[in-house]
Amino acid sequence: MTAVDTPVKHAGHAKEHVRGLNGLRALAVVLVFLSHKAHVETVDVGKLGVWIFFLISGFLIIGELHRNRVRVEAGNARREAVMCVFFMKRALRIFPIYYLLLLALTIAHALFYQRDVDLGLAWHYFFLSDYWIGVVKDGWPGTVSHFWSLAVEQQFYLVAPFLLVLTPASRHRAVCALVVLTGVAGHLAMHAADASEPLIYACSPLNFALLALGGLCGVLGRERGLARAAGHCSTGIIGALGVLVFATQPVWSTLVLPFSAAGSAWIDIGLALSLCVLFAWIANSPGSIVVSALEIKPLDYLGTISYGFYLFHNLIPSKLGFAPAWFAAPTWVHTLCALTLQFALAVLLAHLSWHLVEKRLLELKKPFEAAIARRLPARRLHSQTQPR
C-alpha cells in the first residue's frame, strides 16, 4: 500500500529492481476494489489483496532495515542516520496525501458527506483505524474503513526500525520468526475466545505476522538456499494451489460440515503461509513467465500509483455509473458499466495524486538523505577524515 520503493538497496549501495512487485501491487489493489465495489463474497478477495500488500511491505521495509543494520555493523553508517532516513522516507511517502485527504474528508463530513455516519475521523488521524473498527465500533461503518490496513502498516513502521536497527543483523531472522509465531498464536487465541469478525480482521496479530513473513523473504532472499528453492517452478505451483484451496474455503466448506473457530483460524494461517510461498517464488524468479506478465506496463503503472488508488477508491459513490431503471439492459451490464466508471475515476484520482503531489515529494528524498548523511556521517568515514 505504501512501501513502493521497489528498487532494493544492498550493502554495496547498488540498486536492483525487484521485478513483478508493482504488478503484484496492482493485482492486490484490484482485489480490494472488487471486494468493496463488486461485493465479491465467494472468495474474500479483499483479505487476499491486503495480505499481499503486507507481504510486499515486509519484504521491502525489513529487507532495507536489515541491509542498513549490516552497514552499521560494518561502520559504513550510523544508527541515528539510518533511522532518520527511514522515518523521513516514510513520512514523505505516507503523510502528505493521507492527511490532505483526511482534512478534505473532515470538512466535507461537517458540511454534507455521510453526516449521519460516524466515520471515526479522529482515530484515522492517529493511525488507530484498526482499533476503532475492532474495539470501539466493532463493525465497518462508513467509507473510510479501509484505512485500517494503513494503520497496521504505520504501527509496523513505528516499531520495526527500533526492533531491527538496534538488533544485530544475525538475529533478524529469529526476530521475524518470533513475530510470526506470536502472530499465529495470537490469531488462534482470538478465534478460541470467539472474538468478533471485525476485531479479528482488523486487530489480529496475524497481520503483523504477514509483515514478518515478507521480511523473512527479504532477509533470506539473497541466500542461496531460499533463492534456489524459490527458483523451482514447483514452489510457485505449491503456493498457488495453497492460495486456491484456502481462499476458496467459503465455497467448498458448504459441501462439508461447518468449520469450528479453530478450523477457521488454521485456514487463515494456511492462506498466509501459501501466499508467502507464492510471493517468495515470484520475488526470486525474475525470469519466470508469471513475473514477465506482472511487468506489463498497465499493471506496472497501476502498482506505482496504487497508494493513491487505495486511498480514493472506496470514497467514490457506489451508485456512480448505474444507468436509470428505465434503461433496458441486463443487470450485469449495469453493474459492469458502473464498476468500469468507478475504477476509471479511481485511477484518474490516483494518477493526479501521483504526478501533482506524491512524485514531487518523493524527489526530495535524495537531498534530505544527503543532508542527514552530512549531519550524521558514518563513524568510519568520520574517523578517517579527522586530523592525526
Rank of each mutant, 00 (worst) to 15 (best):
V219S: 03
G183L: 04
A346M: 09
L345M: 12
A28L: 04
P96Y: 04
L27T: 07
S196M: 13
P367Y: 03
L213P: 02
F246S: 14
T143S: 15
L21Q: 01
A160Y: 00
R79M: 13
I269N: 09
G225V: 11
A26M: 14
Y131R: 11
K89F: 04
I282N: 01
G215S: 05
L348P: 04
A262E: 08
G303A: 10
S383T: 14
D194K: 12
C84F: 12
G303V: 06
V136R: 15
A160P: 01
A122T: 11
Y307T: 09
F87D: 08
I200H: 07
I56P: 00
A14C: 11
A280Q: 05
L341Y: 06
L101P: 03
S204R: 00
S285D: 04
D130W: 06
W132M: 07
L102W: 01
L105N: 05
I107G: 10
A261R: 08
N68M: 09
R224Y: 05
A11C: 12
A344Y: 10
V159A: 08
A247Y: 00
I289F: 04
G308T: 09
L164E: 04
E73V: 04
L111V: 13
L315I: 05
D116P: 06
L163R: 10
R78D: 12
P367E: 03
G287Y: 05
L361A: 06
H313P: 07
G321S: 15
F327R: 12
G139Q: 06
V347N: 02
F95Q: 03
W332Y: 13
V180F: 08
H124Q: 09
N22T: 06
L31F: 03
T335D: 13
L294A: 02
L158Y: 00
S353Y: 02
E358W: 04
L128M: 15
H146T: 14
T143G: 15
G225N: 10
A240C: 05
A14K: 14
G75S: 06
C337N: 10
L188H: 03
P7D: 05
S35M: 14
S57K: 01
Q384H: 15
P96C: 09
W252E: 08
Q342R: 15
E80W: 11
R90G: 03
V85W: 00
K297S: 11
K89S: 10
P298E: 05
A151S: 15
L302N: 00
Q154A: 02
I305K: 02
L119D: 04
A151L: 06
E295R: 09
L150N: 01
Y301S: 02
V4S: 05
R69M: 09
C276A: 14
P96D: 03
C176W: 02
E197V: 14
V32A: 07
G139C: 13
G46W: 01
H232V: 12
E223L: 15
L381F: 12
I238T: 01
G308C: 14
P387T: 09
P96T: 05
T42C: 11
V135N: 10
S253I: 08
A240R: 00
G49W: 00
